[in-house]
Design a binder for these strands. Structure first.
Lengths: 344, 344
DNA sequence: CTGAAAGCGCTTACAG
DNA sequence: CTGAAAGCGCTTACAG
């Protein structure tokens, strides 16, 4: 207050370091604060003369509208929560990059959350409510109660590569069931008759779909197969391989893995521990199409998920529901592309 | 206004779906709005009785304080911008998970930006200013001008694994120079005398440090070596390997790669295209300690970056500077751990 | 410990 | 096209 005596025809001297506000710009440009606001709103009616004055002043002060204040009044934060798990192995940086690019087209930003244990989800959701996000993209599991909370709060939610039977839930995914069938068909066409199937974790619906797709097709063909429990990791596949090699009376001709990482673990173990050649002695196939699947050491036959298409669909589905919350749920499933490598 | 006649002892009937505000809670609990606010502020003085009433009401209404409104008045968004590039290959999901965990301890959230081309940076920074982030963690390159802008706006900035000679810039990194020297020392101790060095991209200061570390140590030992230009990618290493094998009069005994991905590309190519054995015919070493470096097919001798320590340091350095902007810049460099695998 | 009031930096009818 | 004014949902002196 004492400082105001220095320049008594202004409210109070702003500290030098203060971020410029629309009032500062208005004063410098000699217009009202509302005029400044309009200049930063697309499609608002402002005369060219006013706009020029305002833009000049804004530039001078390094003014940028405060998105936080804007969000408070428009009730649109232009922020979307993205929830992933630590164990997402599907070309994570690439996916994030696409996600960022697609959301940017809508002027939307990503508030990122990584959940480990299921117990974290509660805390994460609390944070999400507090930040008034416009929507949620979840690449993690939700409980029914958590989904209900989103609905009650009117926050659109789209799942990425998660499977829910409930038809009122929106999700984008790859057709894991069909993908697995495609792989099996391919192996059958190569004359394979005895199979091993390395499953993913039991609590992953995606892993179960892949398993069912493979099993269904194998049974239909009357092929012989054994299932080995895994959990998507390299080590689990290595362990299953040791178990398989020591217990099987007759070697399988092909191993169908729940994902690429497991296929890699299987191949490495077959080669290093048992001196087998891939694909001469045994075929191995994966699922996902991660970068390493193309490395010459593996050159996996696998199902490549159409990452960019899936991300694009996720974003457009979410944005539609942010614009109009009455749009009913939708499930979109993309067929994966069978990539025939040298591993089978 | 017409609607107020319906229930004239309240302001206006809130729409059913409206998110509860502190006023709603206050009304239901029969206290003032300030009292509600205090109940959600740690360390504020509220009687147990008032707190109980408020919490009960808040629970009933599903009330959570609006972090956006809070940020507006406290000038603390509790949001930090994290800028990465599409090509970060260093255990990205793991790093993000640690980052998220460490920042959560401070009640801080991540606004994620992925930059591709340098041209994107301008747009990204504009967005960052608008969102009033409390600080920036950058795993991407900044121009001098961009760094100056952060400083002018008083936004703390910490670089992650980027090298700047300017001592007024805070950064956390791995000691790439020493790491590369360690690798060379190890190879020399195994009796190697002729080397190939696969460099990373020229515009990466980190890659240059690794290169200089290796070259310095090789020169000091009087060893013979050739440098092949690469760009951190698998394909660039594969190409360099073909070039090396067709041009070198005498095969090198060891290949020093700028990162693990290149070491893998090199090994795959030596094996697949030239039928060589690793390490019997040739040693190959990498840098980073990515997950794939431990796969049996490679079992790389490499420098493992202490991811968690580095993330922890980044977060604590940033938080310190958010609390007190007068703290001078700091550079922290962690020694990498030499992991001796079977590739050398 | 508690409540009334001002204000954070915007947007948006409203009247001119 | 333009400006004065109200209000988004909070926090925080201030007075009691």
């Amino acid at each position: 207050m004492e400082k105001s005596s220095v320049n008594n025809n202004q409210k109070v001297a702003k500290p030098a370091n203060h971020r410029a506000t629309s009032y500062d710009v208005a004063r410098l440009a000699g217009v009202s604060q509302s005029a400044v606001s309009r200049c930063f709103k697309a499609g608002a009616s402002v005369s060219a003369k006013t706009r020029a004055k305002v833009m000049k002043a804004a530039d001078e002060l390094g003014y940028q509208p405060n998105a936080i204040a804007r969000g408070l009044i428009t009730r649109r934060s232009n922020i979307v929560a993205v929830i992933t798990t630590e164990f997402t192995n599907l070309n994570y940086p690439e996916m994030m990059s696409h996600l960022n690019a697609k959301l940017s087209e809508h002027g939307v930003h990503i508030l990122l959350f990584t959940v480990g244990a299921a117990s974290d989800m509660r805390a994460v959701l609390d944070q999400i409510w507090q930040y008034q996000v416009d929507g949620i993209i979840a690449a993690s599991q939700f409980s029914d109660d958590q989904i209900a909370q989103c609905r009650k709060r009117g926050i659109p939610l789209v799942f990425y590569n998660r499977v829910f039977s409930d038809s009122s839930i929106s999700s984008v995914g790859c057709d894991h069931f069909e993908g697995a069938k495609l792989l099996v068909e391919h192996l059958l066409s190569r004359g394979h008759k005895r199979f091993a199937v390395y499953s993913g974790p039991n609590d992953s619906a995606v892993a179960q779909e892949r398993l069912q797709g493979a099993v269904t097709q194998l049974k239909q063909a009357g092929a012989h197969f054994d299932v080995y429990q895994g959990d998507y990791t390299y080590d689990s596949a290595a362990a299953s391989t040791v178990e398989m090699m020591s217990s099987a009376r007759e070697l399988p001709q092909a191993v169908i893995c729940a994902n690429d990482i497991m296929a890699i673990g299987c191949i490495d173990t077959l080669r290093a521990k048992f001196g087998l050649r891939i694909p001469e002695d045994l075929s191995v196939v994966g699922f996902d199409g991660i970068a390493a699947s193309k490395w010459q050491a593996y050159d996996l036959t696998t199902i490549v998920q159409p990452l960019e298409r899936m991300v694009e669909a996720t974003v457009s589905m979410l944005m539609e529901r942010i614009e109009d919350s009455s749009i009913p749920a939708e499930k979109r499933q993309f067929g994966g592309k069978l990539n025939i490598g040298l591993s089978a």
